[in-house]
Simulated scan of single mutants.
Amino acid sequence: MPLPRGLRSRCEKILSNLPIPDPFSADAFADALAEHRGRPISMHPLPSTADTAAHTGLWVPLASVDAVFYESRTSLAHQTLIKLHELGHIAAGHQPDYNPEMIQQAFPDMEPRYVAKLFGLPRASYDSVEEQEAETIALLLASRLGSGRGTTPDGKRLTATLAHPVRQDYGTAGTR
């Protein structure tokens, strides 16, 4: 599927209106975004029983806090990207787009009747434009992790992973 026209510039504009912490980290951005919006954001690992084949991250706006859940049984770089993706939904002003089955997969120990009662949502459709916006925002933010504007060990690792997914060691043969 081709990317929507103007996606990157739209996402850059969204980010230009937000406070970007320096040094940058996903947690520092969550704090800055929460303060900017006047609404707390809490970050939590998904339960170990969650079906992460279906979802690695989830944003759940509750009455008094936005809860972001992320897969913790993956690399720190991937965890950071998941967090930034979910924060991207919040930053872009998206409406949560999930259905009770999705919540049940993420929280299988929660009884289905409580899922329906707690979230009270109709079946939602998957909006790929919003997912592409959230992912683009996450990648734009991730690029700040190793930009020299205050790097962290996690940021350096994530940047190295994104910038050089496959490295080949050619050794020193043939060099002088």
Rank of each mutant, 00 (worst) to 15 (best):
A106T: 04
L81F: 07
I82N: 01
Q95M: 12
L121E: 15
L140Q: 01
Q105A: 12
A92K: 09
G93K: 08
Q132K: 09
R73Q: 08
G150Q: 03
L162V: 00
E130K: 09
R113M: 08
A134R: 12
H85D: 10
E135R: 05
V115E: 15
S72M: 06
S128E: 14
L162Y: 03
K156R: 13
T80F: 05
R73M: 05
E130S: 06
Q104W: 02
S72Q: 11
A91T: 10
F107Q: 02
H85I: 01
P100N: 10
T152D: 06
R73G: 02
T74V: 07
V129R: 09
T161D: 14
G120A: 00
E71A: 00
L87W: 10
D154W: 11
N99C: 11
S143F: 07
T136G: 00
S72V: 06
Q104T: 05
I90D: 14
K117C: 04
G148N: 00
I90V: 14
D109S: 10
G155M: 00
R73E: 08
R73I: 01
R123G: 03
S143V: 09
H94Y: 08
S128H: 12
I137R: 01
E71Y: 05
K83F: 08
H164M: 13
F119K: 03
V166P: 00
V166F: 05
T159C: 06
G148I: 05
T74W: 04
E130N: 09
Q104Y: 02
T80G: 05
L118F: 08
L87T: 07
T151L: 08
M102A: 11
T159K: 09
L121D: 07
A91E: 06
Q132I: 06
R144H: 08
A116W: 03
E111F: 08
N99D: 15
P96G: 03
T151H: 10
D154Y: 13
A160T: 15
T161K: 13
E71K: 04
V129M: 10
H164K: 14
D109Q: 11
Y98A: 04
K83Q: 15
G148V: 00
P165I: 02
D109T: 09
E71N: 11
Q105N: 03
R144V: 03
P153S: 09
P108N: 03
T159G: 04
K117F: 06
L84H: 10
V166R: 13
A77R: 13
L76T: 11
G93S: 01
D109E: 14
G155R: 00
L158N: 09
P112F: 06
R73K: 06
P165S: 04
E130F: 04
V166H: 09
L118R: 11
R167K: 07
R167Y: 02
A91L: 12
I137V: 05
K83H: 05
A92W: 07
Q132E: 13
D154N: 15
A124C: 10
